[in-house]
């Protein structure tokens, strides 16, 4: 981990209610998707943890919705401004443990660590099936990017305007009924109720339990959760946890 001063390259509305911020800086310490950064925002005391949705040698992409003071201030930032990030934090997905036909799923802005994951798995010769959920058509983003990666893509919308009507859980059940995937292994990012619902229909997998935290690097114990392995810090031992260890 280091405290890296990134420069904002882009910060724009991606679709209804969802923003993409691309920041330039040293990404050489990032081990893989599922890791996160803890960013300092002027006027707020604690840093804000943000998932790394995508990264390359030159920068990081963060996808966010305005949910509070921190994200509102982020949306008002301009290209050229700098932003201090503790980077990288957390464990990231265990890519070697992901089998060939895994489902990568998530809902909304928090889902996007699976984008980089889908790219890396595809490059490794695996064939993941991506299932992403949104409320409605005008909130859909990254569909073309996922298709460009070359993986199978199923979209679920709550209003049925695109793809399967319902949640990602409904879409996954349908994939099983149609014999397209046995739901044996899943990688999930998104809100807690969604992840819990996914865990109920899958046998095994990895879950991104990122939540409310202070330091982000294991010092304050603010984010500790009880797991089958005992108390674990979401920021340090996580945020990616194996399904068999999670107590929902």
């Amino acid at each position: 981990m280091k405290d890296e001063l990134f420069t904002i390259e882009r910060n724009e509305l991606l679709c209804r209610g969802t923003y993409l911020m691309r920041i330039k800086g040293d990404t050489s310490q990032i081990k893989g998707p599922g890791q996160f950064v803890n960013i300092k925002i002027d006027g707020l005391y604690l840093r804000r943890p943000m998932s790394i949705a995508n990264y390359d040698d030159e920068g990081i992409e963060i996808i966010y919705k305005i949910v509070g003071d921190g994200t509102a201030k982020m949306a008002a930032m301009e290209p050229g401004e700098t932003i201090s990030c503790l980077c990288p934090l957390g464990n990231g997905f265990d890519i070697d443990a992901i089998p060939d036909n895994a489902i990568l799923t998530g809902g909304g802005a928090g889902a996007m660590p699976i984008y980089k994951l889908s790219k890396m798995l595809t490059e490794a010769g695996k064939a993941p099936h991506v299932v992403i959920g949104f409320n409605r058509e005008d909130e859909i983003f990254f569909a073309d990017e996922f298709r460009a990666v070359g993986c199978d893509l199923t979209i679920a919308t709550m209003d049925g305007s695109v793809g399967v009507k319902g949640t990602v859980v409904d879409a996954m059940k349908l994939l099983k009924e149609e014999g397209k995937n046995d739901l044996a292994y899943v990688c999930v990012c998104g809100p807690d109720p969604m992840m819990k619902a996914v865990s109920e229909i899958t046998q095994d997998g990895q879950f991104d339990l990122g939540g409310r935290m202070a330091c982000g690097f294991g010092a304050c114990m603010g984010c500790t959760i009880e797991t089958k392995k005992g108390p674990q810090r979401v920021c340090k031992e996580g945020p990616i946890f194996m399904q068999e260890d999670i107590i929902w």
């Binding site: 005391y45 003071d69 921190g70 939540g211 409310r212 935290m213 603010g222 984010c223 500790t224 108390p231």
Partner: peptide
Amino acid sequence: GNAQPRIAD
């Protein structure tokens, strides 16, 4: 320790 959440800004 206590239940989550344990931190507030």
